[in-house]
Structure formats: C-alpha cells, structure tokens
Amino acid sequence: MTTDTRTRIHQIIAEQAMIDVSDVSDDAVPADLGIDSMGVVEAIFAIEEAFDIQVPFNANAPDKTAFDLSSVGSIVAAVERLVAEQRG
C-alpha cells in the first residue's frame, strides 16, 4: 500500500512539475520542484481523483491546513492517513 501510494503521488507530482518521476524524492519541497500555488491546487485535485478522497485545503490559508504540504514525503503520509480515515 505505502509503496503504491508513494509511487502514485510521485507520479502526480512529477506530472505537475513537468519533470521525470525519478527526479522526485520524499524530501523534495513542491515549490522547489516548480509547483506554484495553482500547481498545488491542481495536484491536490489529482490526488483526490486518484485516491477517491477529500483533501481539506483552502488556498487562502495553505499553511493552516491539516494536510501537510511541506514535502513530498509529508504529502504521502497525509494521503495515507486520509485514505485510512475516509475509506475505513
């Protein structure tokens, strides 16, 4: 599960940043990969679609969300938690 989730998120981030998936690592910061605020919103949409979950995120206060976007690894962890919570 973890590997699949991580792989899929790495693919989503790579596609959003228009880079090769091999250049995405868990310690990478989305902004450093070239993902701006619009890119974050689009990536979250892709994650919601891929995992059939609802991600709590308001673009007005990206720092206040419970969804930790500080690194690719934190996104993987947050998605795993949401999948566990929302799919039971």
Partner: peptide
C-alpha cells in the same frame, strides 16, 4: 479552493475566502 465555507471577511486576519 478559494471559497469560504463560513462567510466573507475581507481584510480580516481570520478571512477564509
């Protein structure tokens, strides 16, 4: 993802969209 679910609070520290 810029819409508020509570109300519109322009220029307020607690604004939510």
């Amino acid at each position: 993802r810029v819409m508020s679910r509570d109300t519109c609070r322009p220029f307020c520290a607690t604004r939510s969209g």
